[in-house]
C-alpha cells in the first residue's frame, strides 16, 4: 500500500528534487494513513532519505542502469510498485522523470498528472492541482485509475524535514531490452544549472553585447545562482543556447528570478512565470516586465548591477 517515490541521484548523491518529492510523498502517505517507500538507482548512502519522511528504501544497484534509461527505470519502478502493492507513485518534474512517467503509466495502467503544485486536495477522488496554459492557469485534475502517478513541479512544494529513519533493502528488478544506448553525455560541471537552481540571474538584449556579461556572472556567483538569457541573446550568439529560457527555451521555476535588460515579452514570461519572486532591472518604466515582477528598479543595468553586487557581498559577509 505504501506510497512509492522515485528519488533521483547523480553519481550516488541525491538531487534536491529527490528530497522535495520525498517530502511530498510523506504528505500523501500521511493523508492516506500509510508509509513511504523510495526507489533509488545506484545511490550509496540512502539513510538521508529518512530525514524527509521515507520509511523504506529499495536500492537498485545494477551496472546496466549506470546511465539513465527511461524504459528500464520505468520497468524497475513498475516492478517495485507491484511488489509493494503501491497505489500512488510520486516522481519529480526533472527531464528524466518527465521522460519515464508516461512509460510507467502505460506499464501500470496508471493515470498520470504532471506539473502538480500542491498536495492532493482530496485522496478520494484523488484530486491534484496542476499548472496549465504555460502557468497562466491551474487545473484541478482527478486521477481515476487504481494506481496513480503524480509528477511534482520543482520548488512548488518545498523540502520538508522530518525526523525519521529509513531502512534499506536491495532490490533487483529484471531489466528489459534497453532499446536506446547512450553514446555520450555532455554536461556542464561546476556550475549551477537552470534546472537545479533556486536563483536564476538572466540577461537580455538591454545588456548590449556578450562582453558585458561579466557582471551578470558575478551577480550569479554571489548568489549561488544559475545564469540565463532571453531568446535574442542566444540567437545572436552572445550566450549559449542552453541558457535560453522562455516558451521555446528552458522553463524556469526558481525561488528568485532576476531579469536584467529584458523587456518581458509574453513568450519570455511564459517560461519563467512559475518562479516565485521576480525582480526586474530595466531603464524603461513601460517595459512589460514591470507588470509581472514583484520588485523592480527603473535604472541603467550598468550602474545598478555593480551596486547590487557590492551590497550583496556586504550582506553575505555579515551572514
Amino acid at each position: 500500500m505504501s506510497v512509492l517515490v522515485y528519488t533521483e541521484s547523480d553519481k550516488g548523491t541525491f538531487k534536491k528534487t529527490a528530497l522535495e518529492v520525498a517530502s511530498y510523498a510523506k504528505t500523501v502517505a500521511d493523508q492516506m494513513g500509510t508509509t513511504v517507500t523510495a526507489i533509488t538507482f545506484n545511490a550509496e548512502d540512502t539513510s538521508v532519505l529518512g530525514n524527509y519522511g521515507v520509511d523504506k528504501v529499495l536500492k537498485v544497484n545494477n551496472s546496466q542502469l549506470e546511465t539513465f534509461n527511461a524504459k528500464a527505470y520505468a520497468s524497475a519502478i513498475a516492478q517495485a510498485a507491484k511488489k509493494e502493492g503501491t497505489k500512488v507513485i510520486i516522481v519529480s518534474s526533472s527531464a528524466d522523470s518527465k521522460y519515464l512517467a508516461p512509460l510507467l503509466a502505460i506499464d501500470l495502467d496508471a493515470g498520470y498528472a504532471s506539473n502538480v503544485v500542491e498536495a492532493p486536495s482530496s485522496t478520494s477522488p484523488f484530486t491534484v492541482k496542476r499548472t496549465a496554459f504555460t502557468n497562466k492557469a491551474f487545473n484541478m485534475t482527478a486521477i481515476n485509475t487504481d494506481v496513480k502517478i503524480v509528477g511534482v513541479s520543482k520548488n512548488a512544494f518545498g523540502v520538508k524535514e522530518n525526523s525519521g529513519s529509513a531502512s534499506a533493502e536491495d532490490f533487483s528488478p529484471s531489466v528489459p531490452d534497453l532499446g536506446i544506448k547512450v553514446e555520450s553525455v555532455d554536461k556542464v560541471t561546476g556550475q549551477v544549472t537552470i534546472a537545479d537552481a533556486e536563483i536564476v540571474v538572466s540577461g537580455g538584449r538591454g545588456l548590449k553585447g556578450p562582453e558585458n556579461w561579466g557582471m551578470v556572472e558575478e551577480l550569479a556567483d554571489v548568489l549561488g545562482a544559475a545564469t540565463a538569457c532571453s531568446k535574442p541573446v542566444s540567437d545572436l550568439g552572445w550566450r549559449p543556447h542552453s541558457e535560453h529560457v522562455g516558451q521555446t527555451g528552458k522553463p524556469v521555476a526558481a525561488n528568485l528570478y532576476i531579469a536584467i535588460g529584458i523587456s518581458g515579452a509574453i513568450q519570455h514570461l511564459a517560461g519563467i512565470n512559475a518562479s516565485k519572486v521576480k525582480v526586474v532591472i530595466n531603464t524603461d518604466p513601460e517595459a512589460p516586465f514591470f507588470k509581472a515582477a514583484d520588485y523592480g528598479i527603473v535604472g541603467d543595468a550598468f550602474e545598478v548591477v555593480p551596486k547590487l553586487i557590492e551590497k550583496l557581498k556586504a550582506f553575505k559577509a555579515q551572514q
Partner: peptide, 12 residues
C-alpha cells in the same frame, strides 16, 4: 536529448 544541465547523444 536535452537533459538537466546538458545534453546526451543516444543511438537507437
Amino acid at each position: 536529448r536535452e537533459i538537466d544541465g546538458g545534453k546526451e547523444t543516444v543511438s537507437t
